[in-house]
Design a protein around this nucleic acid. Structure first.
Lengths: 139, 139
DNA sequence: TTCTATGCAAACCCTTTGCAAGGTA
DNA sequence: TACCTTGCAAAGGGTTTGCATAGAA
């Protein structure tokens, strides 16, 4: 589903669907754990021993440009990616183990409108993260 | 005000208040523009020609440990700091010029409670950013 | 056959660290 | 005086880039 959408979008932009790109897209389309570049690469080298980190980075750059993945920037942990829901949505993040989950939808549209009125900014997107300890790490 | 609080806190933790640290604290306590390490350093070298970036970084590390500044991590722009309001609060960020402002208070306590119930996480802090174009950059 | 993509290695940027010299309390 | 801090330079970690080779269409 998401995989097909991603492929379609890349084809429309005259990008070639190489085996490497297909493999990266597949991981992103099927992962709900918000993988890092490192973990995507690690998962792929098993089947594609020559797969390079650079290719993963380049594919992700492509998908970002096309709006097909959401990038969660962390200056410490390294960035994490969401290929299934490439639009802004809240995240709950464990500061101990790095686990990231999506809570059920929370509508920030009204708040965003208020922010625009108050600040004069033309707001295009947002980021809402909650940080704490997941059930496993509270022991 | 904030300056005195910061100094007090550092003294309690047996940190020496050197001229360099005092200068960094002063900039952080008086800046509402969420300065970067680079900009803090640039402002200080005028008066302290030998001031090093390392010292600014080390002072900030200290203040983070003491909970006296809020760090806004950006993997691209570099991190930005708020020494006046060292607790989590929403930010509105211009993706063109990097301007960051604080909109009026927005209470996320209720939402945070809901998140904890739903996810089982013990949430300690949060981050809410709105990204867009400031009035000056909309032309 | 043409032109894009890959993958290695080097370059980059921001941040942290090691260590000798200087300065605080 | 004793110990902490400074500041230089080098190390680090994640990400990007250059370029020759491989490969998709």
């Amino acid at each position: 589903m998401r995989l097909e959408q991603m492929i379609e979008r890349l084809k429309e932009s005259d990008c070639r669907i190489t085996p490497q790109r297909y493999a990266v897209l597949k991981v992103l389309a099927n992962s709900s754990e918000h993988p890092s570049v490192e973990s995507i690469h690690a998962k792929l080298v098993e089947h594609y021993p020559t797969m390079s980190l650079a290719t993963v980075y380049k594919t992700i750059t492509l998908l970002k440009r096309e709006g097909e993945i959401l990038e969660l920037e962390f200056s410490d942990l390294g960035n994490r990616y969401d290929g299934r829901k490439p639009y802004p949505h809240p995240h709950v993040i464990c500061t101990e183990c790095g686990k990231i989950i999506d809570p059920s939808h929370l509508d920030l549209e009204e708040i965003t409108s208020k922010m625009m009125e108050e600040t004069g900014f033309k707001i295009m997107t947002h980021r809402l993260d909650f940080y704490g300890l997941c059930p496993n790490c509270q022991g």
